[in-house]
């Protein structure tokens, strides 16, 4: 474990806590893409299959349970909770995310570390996570003004993977035989997708103005 990965995990956890706070405090999920939440739930379920077979550490197990539990709870809330689901921007959240799932699965069959079921699913979860934020970014551009908590949620979600890239660079130089090229390339794509969001988020912070994404 290194400082980049730990702050990365804490940033990821913070993004989930901010999202839970927004939904719980405002009883609203306006501006949040249900499709991105469903993709993230699928990412965690596909990646953490080894939850009960490979014990890495208490930290690792606890975080996996938190990520799976929170992502499923958010999807359940947005689909079932009568007050929350009323505020869901159904007509704006129309990105066809099933194509993302199919595409990532095909890519995982072709490009993986080893053509074994767990490895293919792991690669699938890595590719899917890289593109899972697209419905959310599309929704933000369509909905124009972004409330603070939603903006902070998306910012933290993007920042965590940037910290993981620093972690991979650090591990590459400090650990012999360390290679996570699949995760690293996908992580670079994932972080690049946030580039313009980061730019407008920085502008809104610098000018102390409301976060506005050009539609």
């Amino acid at each position: 474990m290194n400082v980049f990965r730990l702050t990365g995990d804490m940033t990821h956890l913070a993004s989930i806590l901010v999202l839970l706070l927004k939904i719980y405090a405002t009883k609203s999920c306006s501006g949040i893409s249900l499709k991105t939440q469903e993709l993230y739930a699928l990412v965690f379920l596909a990646r953490y299959l080894n939850l009960f077979t490979d014990f890495i550490s208490v930290y690792n197990t606890v975080m996996k349970l938190v990520f799976i539990g929170s992502s499923l709870a958010i999807v359940w809330c947005m689909r079932m909770h009568k007050m929350v689901k009323r505020s869901y921007d159904q007509e704006l959240d129309t990105f066809r995310h099933y194509f993302l799932i199919a595409g990532c699965f095909l890519l995982a069959l072709l490009v993986n570390e080893k053509f074994m079921f767990p490895e293919v699913l792991w690669a699938f979860s890595i590719y899917l996570e890289a593109v899972s934020t697209i419905p959310q970014l599309v929704l933000l551009q369509r909905s124009g003004n972004v409330d603070n908590l939603t903006g902070q949620y998306v910012f933290l979600l993007g920042a965590y993977r940037a910290l993981y890239i620093l972690n991979w660079i650090y591990r590459y130089f400090t650990e012999p035989h360390f290679s996570r090229w699949i995760a690293c390339v996908a992580g670079l794509v994932q972080t690049a997708l946030y580039a313009d969001f980061f730019y407008y988020y920085f502008l809104s912070w610098k000018n102390n103005a409301k976060l506005q994404l050009p539609s």
Binding site: R5, N50, N60, F67, E175, H177, R180
Partner: peptide
Amino acid sequence: GKKNKKKDEL
């Protein structure tokens, strides 16, 4: 040495 195959990251 053995490549660290374990997926120790989240």
